[in-house]
Design a protein around this nucleic acid. Structure first.
Lengths: 345, 345
DNA sequence: TTGTAAGCGTTATCAC
DNA sequence: GTGATAACGCTTACAA
């Protein structure tokens, strides 16, 4: 069906290959009548140029690869990566690029992945990676493959990245709880191999420090982003002689576990336990009491990453770009009013 | 860095292009010493052949495209598509293929997608699509692009597909509830543009019919796979003069809404309301009372789809393949024992 | 076992 | 404005 080549189209339209090529690529120097005739033939036969041939001569694929963390496959957390991907995709469509997500376990098949990247399928890569010492950005960098990272690693000098200020975001979340009068505020950390987990913990500590609340190790749980750990850690917290009155979770997913554990013990949210999450997943709205949380602009992060990448590809722009997108504290029902409430008439 | 061509490698190794090519492609007819020397040079320079050049001559990309429904972006339901993708990816790695997921809104960018597919980026496609009259399989079919569908459409004659028997699976779920003594069994349907939603409803009706329970329209809700509809419909059910004692949900996601609505009214699960879901998402385990549900072999579906596709690609196998993979009813806590319980001493 | 040469389907550089 | 013609980087007969 579409095994026709440009040569065939040329013959059918009674012109040369070059002219057909010009029509396809929208070059102006073709007489309207000719252009029209050629276009007719192209449409009639649903001819589309073969990508490989084109790529070979132009040395461009107009394709960008999207690499996700392994995490994405196992986690509820999935939605945030999907959103970032959507952002990337939007820009690509607009700029007439193609974006493809590479499948497969990153850590298990690293060599396969690197080989693939070296074979120049992609003009560039958007890499979603928040891990310390991830080998992937290192590889991209010293292979000279243009990439923009979503996330960052203080140990690694990425030329271009898009991220949020996790320290500040977490700090504001915890300050909110403090502002409501809470003093015993538990925190569930994310996986500490992720920079965002470390930073959010840092923000938590800063907020406490600022108001002179001593850090109580018992109120800090080693989470791993999953519902299960939210559940287990909350049980531990609630077993304490003096349990927390508030809790900050490093993501929304873990809150699902927190809420379940609380429910099981008859602990009410927010009356007995105020909760702030992180991410602002749409999907959770229906599960929890409306969750107070930090909104992360996932789609926008994908958008910016793609824009920055394409800018580099098209304008050879190799200036460093380090963008921190703004987060917002979205206040809903899961915090209630603590001191304020008891101060009411 | 890896801008070297096969020509450069040949020169550096003191052989001809052909020999390098033979080494790369693992052809036997190369003297071990030579092979070794060439391989050294390749490794030293981290040379990888350029995909486009290779594809141009072989007319094969060894790449398969994975197309997801738009749904996947919006839904919690995401996990099942990710799992199918994992299955596809596993097989590809094993068979030395590359799999890439096409990004972007299917319905909005149909022409873009079709153009992409026509440009021969992919040797074949795994298409996850359970919609009636989806234009995508139709396009693939009459473009002669090999594809295997995950899901099917009775209105469309797909040459190869992998699916489950939704009617039978749903039927067994509802029979389970009936077996526990329930007579007023509500059902939440999925989006009826999806064949699986229609089939699951059919299974529900069959199960009732078999034991002579009349279909009560009031107990059937038009769902759309989301948490929100699970919530709203359950409220409606519980408002009925004679509310259901059991509920079958067309997927696990919607159960989240069901459970929330039940909780809010002090309806206990399973004592007051027994629930059976569909999918068996790992992630839900922590959210609901352990959910009785139908397990769908998502990864395996991806695996089979990829295997069937690659078989077609490599052996020109154009026999029809219609595989229905087995589902299982996984019995956990969300159903309890209804009649049995009251029959106990 | 190895090398030479043709050709894959495009775009790009020239002439005309 | 249009058409030859030479790349692009690889694989693959066919020769040697």
């Amino acid at each position: 069906m579409s095994q026709l080549t440009i040569e065939d189209i040329a013959r059918l339209a009674g012109v040369s290959r070059s002219t057909v090529s010009r029509v396809i690529n929208g070059q102006p120097s073709v007489r309207p009548a000719v252009r029209h005739r050629v276009q007719e033939v192209i449409n009639a036969h649903k001819y589309t140029p073969q990508a490989a041939a084109r790529q070979l001569v132009t040395q461009r694929t107009r394709t960008i690869g999207l690499i996700l963390p392994d995490l994405a496959y196992n986690l509820f957390a999935n939605p945030i990566f999907a959103l970032m991907g959507q952002g990337v995709s939007q820009v690509c469509v607009r700029r007439e690029y193609v974006s493809m997500q590479l499948m497969g376990q990153r850590d298990r098949e690293e060599q396969t992945l690197f080989g693939l990247l070296r074979s120049r399928h992609f003009d560039g890569v958007v890499l979603i990676s928040g891990e310390y010492d991830d080998p992937c950005p290192a590889f991209l960098k010293n292979s000279g493959i243009p990439y923009v990272r979503i996330g960052r690693d203080p140990n690694h000098d990425d030329l271009k990245y898009v991220d949020i200020d996790n320290v500040e975001a977490a700090r504001s979340a915890v300050k909110h709880l403090i502002g409501l009068g809470h003093r015993r505020i538990a925190m569930i950390k994310g996986l500490m191999r992720d920079t965002s987990a470390v930073d959010r913990y840092e923000g938590y500590k800063q907020a406490l420090l600022e108001v002179g609340i001593p850090l109580d190790e018992e109120l800090v749980g080693d989470g791993d982003w999953t519902v299960a750990c939210g559940y287990n850690l909350t049980q531990r917290f609630l077993d304490l002689p003096s349990p927390p009155t508030a809790l900050f979770s490093s993501n929304d997913i873990m809150v699902a576990g927190v809420v379940r554990a609380a429910h099981e013990r008859g602990i009410r949210v927010p009356e007995d336990l105020a909760i702030v999450g992180f991410d602002d997943l749409d999907q959770t709205t229906m599960i929890f009491p409306e969750l107070t949380t930090i909104r992360q602009p996932c789609v926008q992060m994908g958008v910016r990453a793609a824009e920055i990448l394409i800018d580099q590809l098209e304008n050879d722009n190799t200036e460093p770009v380090h963008e921190l997108l703004p987060t917002t504290l979205v206040i809903r029902q899961s915090c209630g009013y603590y001191k304020q409430q008891s101060a009411a008439p």
